[in-house]
Amino acid sequence: MTKDGKSPRIRYDEGCLAAHALNLVGDRWALLVVRELMFTPKRFQMIRKGLPGITASVLTGRLEQLTAACVVDHEERLGIYALTDAGRGLLPVLEALCRWAMTVPGHDPSRFISPSALMISMGVNLMQDSAGGREALAGFDFGTEAFEMRLSRGQLQTTAVTSPEAPFVLSGTGNTLAAAVYSNSPLADLVSVGTVRTTGDIKAAEDFLSLFSLSRQT
């Protein structure tokens, strides 16, 4: 049942649990809306900024559907959308989709990457063998969004912040910082040509970025 007591719109008339999940979050853009809210509540225009291909009417419809499905809460007075516990529970689904995507060809990293998308991707692509026993705190500044990423006991915890306070902060867009994380180019080279900006301990930043690898089978 949805929040208003009504049954969700049926797309798949099956008793399969996967079909039930898709009845709730299977529409185009729905999971990407969830992705944009994964780390922090946002207003409508901020959500749309992370989804440059979506129209205002489609985003309105998806937010209404996700709110009715108890995946998103809408604070109407402030105009803020936030994930519910059920919505936050979709993080492993997004992570699993990222892992699966690396097993099939066709991924084009030159296309738009939102800050939230990069943060989720890094959680998937941390090299556990290298990260075990390491402790680190990294800052990421995307201009309109910022995050701190803490590595402890082989686990990453990502938190949205107003201004990162970390030994180093990497600044840029989702795409340029993805290049810093995943390309084979030394960070110093990317900084020298203006692809990314850094403040703080660049050696610590290089060591941190070495813990991530984007590998896929084709």
Rank of each mutant, 00 (worst) to 15 (best):
M1A: 07
T2F: 00
K3Q: 03
G5W: 00
K6L: 07
S7F: 08
P8V: 03
P8H: 02
I10P: 00
Y12C: 00
Y12S: 00
D13S: 12
E14G: 00
G15T: 07
A18Y: 08
A19T: 01
A21Q: 07
N23W: 03
W29A: 00
A30K: 01
L31K: 05
L32M: 05
V33G: 01
L37I: 01
F39P: 02
T40K: 13
P41A: 07
K42S: 11
R43W: 04
K49P: 01
L51R: 04
G53H: 12
T60H: 14
T60A: 13
G61A: 06
L63G: 05
E64A: 14
L83K: 03
L83D: 08
T84D: 02
G87I: 04
G87F: 02
R88M: 09
P92G: 04
P92V: 02
E95W: 01
E95P: 01
E95K: 10
E95S: 06
A96P: 04
L97V: 08
L97K: 02
C98W: 09
C98G: 06
A101F: 00
A101N: 14
V104I: 12
V104L: 09
P105F: 04
P109K: 04
S110F: 12
R111T: 15
I113N: 11
S114K: 08
A117Q: 15
M119R: 12
I120C: 11
G123N: 11
L126E: 09
D129S: 14
G133W: 12
G139V: 08
F140Y: 15
F142P: 05
G143R: 11
T144S: 15
E145R: 11
A146R: 10
F147C: 07
E148T: 15
L151F: 06
L156H: 03
L156F: 04
Q157C: 07
T159D: 09
S163F: 08
S163V: 12
P164T: 04
P167W: 02
F168V: 01
S171L: 09
N175Y: 00
N175E: 15
T176W: 03
A178R: 13
D189A: 14
L190F: 07
G194S: 13
G194E: 12
T195R: 12
V196Y: 09
R197D: 15
D201K: 06
K203S: 13
L214M: 12
S215Q: 13
